[in-house]
Structure formats: C-alpha cells, structure tokens
Design a protein around this nucleic acid. Structure first.
Lengths: 124, 124
DNA sequence: GTCCCTGCAAATCCTTTGCACTCCT
DNA sequence: AGGAGTGCAAAGGATTTGCAGGGAC
C-alpha cells in the first residue's frame, strides 16, 4: 500500500485525537511517545504528504510555525495576535461565501484565518 | 525626531505608492533605486518598526514570505493557493463582524486572510 | 558630543533534502 | 530482491541581530 508506514499512521492518529493545531515539533514530541526513534524529518515529510493528499490541513497564522489540523470540516481559524491562540469557529458555508464573493474567488475548505484579539486579551 | 531616517521614509513611501503586497526583498529592490546602498537588514528593521507603530500592516499568507501593506483601510486579503495572488477585498465592517462574532473575538483591522482559488485558476 | 540608526555579515531557526539503511511485500 | 519510507545530519532560505561607524540634532 503506497504511502503506508507506522510512522505516518501514528502522525495521522495524533492529529485526529487532538483538537488543537500543533506545529511539526509538537507532533514530533507527541508521536515520540509512541515511536521513540522517529525523526523530525520523517514528521515533516509525512505532514507534507498528508496535506498534499488532503487527509489533514495546514494552517498558517504568521507566528513563524506551520500548524496542522486534523479537522477537515469547514471552519474559520481565529488567531489572537496577543496570546497566539488559534480558535476554531464553525461558520455556515453561505456566510463566508457571501463575504468573499468577489471577482469569482472560491474559498478553499477550512483554511481561512482571521487575525485579531481574543476575549481574554481584549479585556487586559 | 525618533525613528526618522531617509531609509525609513523611502520604505514608507514605497509602500504607499504601490497597490500590491510586496515582500521585504521586493521592497528592498525598489528602494535601492532611490538609496542604492541601503541594506536588506535595514529594510527588515524598518518594516518591523513600521508594523509595530501601526503605519503599515503585515500580511501572512503562508507562501514562505512576509508581505507588507501600506493600505490600512479595512479589507480582506484573498490568497490564491494556485497562482499565489493576493487580492484585496473591501468588505463592510458589519459583515466580517457578523461572521466572526464568536466568544468575544475582535477582528483586527485589515489583517484577515481567506485562502482559495482565484477566478483564473478555477477556470483551468 | 550624544544617541539613534545604518551597513555589513554572521547567526538563528524552521523546514527541506541527500544518502545509506531498513522494513514490508 | 525491489521499492518505498526512514533516520540522521547537513543544507537551505527568510529573517534577526551584534557591532562598529555615521548622521541628525
């Protein structure tokens, strides 16, 4: 079976079992508890491959790290520029389409980011 | 006057006179035609300082470069994952607030990115 | 003169990649 | 055996930073 390896499976499992948006290094640290001798390069290689095959999504928020998301359902990512949190927001397909209906642009599933301040940081 | 230098002014002028979202290297190339011996480090330093002081905005789209925007008015950035274009979209404040009204999150002016496919790439 | 900012180049840091080896079929 | 995937370490590339020198006031 093409692309199969226990390393790839462990990485995909890790992303499916958590609800945050870990970086490659964070995935590496977690998966190491299952496969202690896995290498960081392998994690990067499999994450890139999983993104390309559409099994996971990558999220760029501009904090210097690429983040990965095992949840492929349609949602926005709110990124707090103050505390760095990445918050999932379910929105109706129609709503986002309504906003970005501009010269034929088609939003891609799930990889939208809105920058701002989260509730906690706003209060400070 | 704190922060003033002809280099800083040339960088700000460059960003105000163009309508795209250049990278640091692109700003460097343009400003070099005005100040030939300016260094790339100075461009990076001033861009960071201008972002911090709110005179320009930085836009992260995940193409490996930070982009800079001299237009501070409220707008979304549509990023085509296929051709790399960054397209400005004016939206009403109300509309975007309506979408991201989630647990008190406050969108920050002008630094929102929506990923997808532009008209041209969609047709291919 | 003082202080801030520059130019230069080295350093940093996330990510990618080359290569020999291993694992699975 | 053959091929795909791995581990390791070095390379890559955008950005940052230390330091000595120069310009503004």
């Amino acid at each position: 079976m093409a692309n199969y390896s226990k390393q790839r499976e462990a990485i995909l499992n890790e992303l499916h079992s958590r609800c945050d948006h870990p970086t490659a290094a964070q995935v590496y640290e977690s998966v190491r508890q299952v496969i202690p001798n896995i290498s960081l390069g392998t994690v990067y290689r499999n994450l890139a491959s999983l993104v390309e095959s559409g099994e996971i999504l990558s999220v760029t928020v501009g904090d210097g790290y690429e983040h990965y998301d095992g949840d492929k359902s349609f949602h926005l990512h709110l990124h707090c520029k103050c505390c760095g949190a990445i918050i999932d927001t379910k929105v109706q397909d129609e709503k986002i389409k309504n906003i970005v209906d501009f010269d034929g642009f088609t939003p891609e599933n799930s990889v939208c980011v809105v920058y701002g301040l989260c509730k906690n940081c706003k209060l400070q």
